[in-house]
Design a protein around this nucleic acid. Structure first.
Length: 618
RNA sequence: CGGGACGUGGCUCAGCCUGGUAGAGCGCUUGGUUUGGGACCAAGAUGUCGCAGGUUCAAAUCCUGUCGUCCCGACCA
């Protein structure tokens, strides 16, 4: 081994110099046999803690990632993992891997660089276009950087599996994914490049696919629990990935990017993009107020709120909000109640559309002859334009809406009498306080971070990419698929977001970079504290405890602050004063100080670590 | 893509309004004193003031453009 030739000599360190810095240099060059892995000594690894909060970090977990020296930013949405961050990341990965294996999934590794052809084949070259990174090779051929791997795995399975006898199968991988995010933010939360675990199941039938789905669902519950994370499954929209059944795993946090509606009595919980209720808290008027719509002047009134105020006094619940959208390039009129919000994901899901956006003021005027703020569907909507209305408006009478003429509205509108409705749909976003469908308790809404997502995909990809099998009767069928993702890097940050206090991170033992931080308050080689520290270090190592020795020649305050900032679950401090009494100090991060006899320290630590490990065990 | 804010040493920021050639704290280096909760004293090093144009005798400062970062939005007519 070449390495042996260059191994540093372990000869005694000369301490001739009285200079402090010379002493430090001398210290760091010794003791290499005790520390075969340099990462076990603070001075020999790399933990660049920051006293001050970096200016471009907004949320607490992002700040702590930087302050605790876990990651450094290369540029927006791209980060380098430093030793402590990497150790935690690997632990999260290990938990994910163990639970996937246990659930019967098979690990593979797929290419990050992919041919665009398979994306055209699945149809997602179009639907995911904006999120796809594309690169060209020297021959000017285009490639894409994989934002996910349904296409690749389905291609593999299509080629390798042909019989019902070979199914079910579930393949998973843990690797980098690339997405051209509109706006990367919050550190690892929404990055251009991130580590994801994704699993893909292939079954012979819907029922069999549900079994696979359930296995993953259960595995996810265990994974997040083992990471020390409180995460909850909620019903979810499937989005561009397709499919018809899906749950997201959410970590409640104000800094999350999702809203979850939930009912504490029934346990119902759903992403706001999907959530339903028994309807608005304020009912819709259903009594006729006039024989026909009546136009009245409303100069300058272009908002629901303005119409609700003097001199009109029309409550928002008595108004029809008219929205105009381009749905797959087709101009479309959408009606919701004045106090409701259109739910775009619901619209997309129900119409099966791909690209949806609000129409521009120019497009609207060209088609309807009026500007936003005066729009309505009573008159002036050409028959070629579909009008979709929210079901809450069914039977509504005595409503007020725009007259499709700037500066005018209609009152006494009976929606079913006066408006041509193409189709009734669920278009509204539920609001807090509305009653849940199941038991009629009020829904609450809170922010959350999405850390995992399980989908039942059906045969969308297997049909397009020819992943078929021969059944017992010799018939060819498309495989029924499911896909299951976990944002590994995001999960890591979610742990920090959930487990921290004013002093820093409070790692759950299962994902902490080290289980124990051993802090001798003197590192002078001849000092009792240092000598004891070396002995205890060796004993803890021998006992299989992951321990980091803070061998820096720093003042106690610095060591304490740093160990709390980085967040090691347990700290063993050895100071000259207590050691004179034969004692050392144990402190669980976030807990109270315990003074114990030096001889008992190792056993106490081993016991504590073992009991803590048991909490997060499989 | 729209709106806003910001780019000054490794980090946090001041200086800009009112142009005159760059500062503080932290960190870093050296020496000394300290040594149980982010020490103190002294002496140092470190900045093309994001970049490119322009105005001016003179630009960190004013103007234009550009790049980058962060925040909000990208349904609420």
């Amino acid at each position: 081994m070449l390495g042996g030739l260059f191994r540093r000599d372990d000869s005694p360190v000369l301490l001739a110099s009285s200079s402090r810095s010379a002493f430090r240099r001398a210290l760091s060059s010794g003791e290499s046999q005790l520390f075969p892995d340099n990462s076990m000594r603070w001075s020999q690894t790399f933990i660049p803690t920051l006293k001050e909060t970096p200016a471009d970090a907004e949320i607490i977990s992002h700040q702590l990632l930087l302050r605790a020296g876990l990651v450094r930013k290369l540029t927006g949405g791209l980060y380098t993992f430093l030793p402590m961050g990497l150790r935690s990341l690997k632990k999260v990965e290990a938990i994910v891997r163990a639970e996937m294996d246990r659930a019967g999934a098979i690990e593979v590794l797929m290419p990050a660089l992919q041919p665009p052809e398979i994306w055209h084949q699945s149809g997602r070259y179009q639907t995911m276009m904006d999120a796809l990174y594309k690169v060209k090779d020297r021959a000017n051929k285009e490639w894409v950087l994989g934002p996910t791997h349904e296409e690749v795995i389905t291609h593999l399975v299509a080629n390798e599996f042909n019989s019902y006898r070979q199914l079910p199968r579930n393949f998973y991988q843990i690797q980098l994914k690339f997405r051209d995010e509109i706006r990367p933010r919050f550190g690892l939360m929404r990055a251009k490049e991130f580590i994801m675990k994704d699993a893909y199941s292939f079954d012979v039938s819907d029922e069999a696919a549900m079994v696979s789905y359930r296995k993953m669902y259960d595995a996810y519950i265990r994974i997040f629990a083992r990471c020390g994370l409180r995460a909850f499954p909620v019903e979810a929209d499937t989005g561009v990935i397709g499919g018809n059944y899906s749950h997201e795993f959410m970590v409640p946090a104000e800094t999350g990017e999702n809203d979850v509606a939930y009912c504490e009595s029934s346990g119902y919980a759903a992403n706001i993009e999907k959530a339903v209720s028994r309807g608005p808290s304020v009912s819709t008027p259903a009594d006729s107020s006039g024989p026909a719509p009546e136009k009245f002047p409303t100069p300058g009134v272009v908002t629901i709120d303005a119409l609700a105020k003097a001199p009109f006094h029309v409550p928002p619940s008595h108004q029809i909000k008219t929205l105009v959208y381009m749905v797959d390039s087709k101009l479309t009129v959408l009606l919701v109640r004045g106090d409701d919000q259109l739910n775009e994901p619901k619209l997309i899901a129900q119409l099966g559309s791909i690209a949806v956006r609000p129409a521009t003021a120019d497009e609207i005027f060209a088609a309807l002859g009026a500007h936003p703020g005066s729009l309505g569907a009573v008159t002036g909507v050409p028959a070629s334009i579909p009008v979709y209305a929210d079901r809450v408006l069914q039977g509504a009478k005595g409503m007020t809406t725009g007259a499709n003429e700037d500066g005018h509205h209609y009152r006494h509108v009976e929606i079913e009498r006066d408006i041509r409705i193409t189709q009734w749909l669920d278009l509204r976003t539920v609001q807090a306080g509305e009653l849940s469908v199941q038991v009629g308790s009020p829904l609450k809404i809170r922010r959350a971070i999405e850390v995992g997502h399980v989908f039942k995909l059906g045969t969308k990809y297997s049909e397009k990419l020819n992943a078929t099998f021969l059944s017992e009767d010799g018939q060819r069928h498309p495989m029924v698929m499911g896909c299951y993702g976990i944002g590994v890097t995001r999960t890591l940050q979610a742990v920090i977001e959930q487990c921290q206090d004013k002093d820093g991170i409070l790692w759950p033992l299962s994902v902490a970079p080290f289980e124990v931080c051993l802090s001798p308050l003197s590192v002078v080689p001849t000092s009792p504290a240092w000598q004891l520290a070396q002995r205890l270090y060796a004993e803890l190592e021998a006992a299989g405890i992951q321990v980091l020795l803070d061998d820096r020649d720093e003042r106690p305050g610095v060591k304490f602050k740093d160990s709390e900032l980085v967040g090691f679950p347990l700290r063993l401090a050895i100071g000259e004063k207590s050691l004179a009494k034969g004692e050392v100090e144990l402190k669980v991060r976030g807990g109270t100080l315990q003074v114990v006899k030096a001889e008992e320290a190792v056993q106490r630590i081993v016991d504590w670590v073992h009991s803590e490990r048991a909490k997060f065990a499989a």
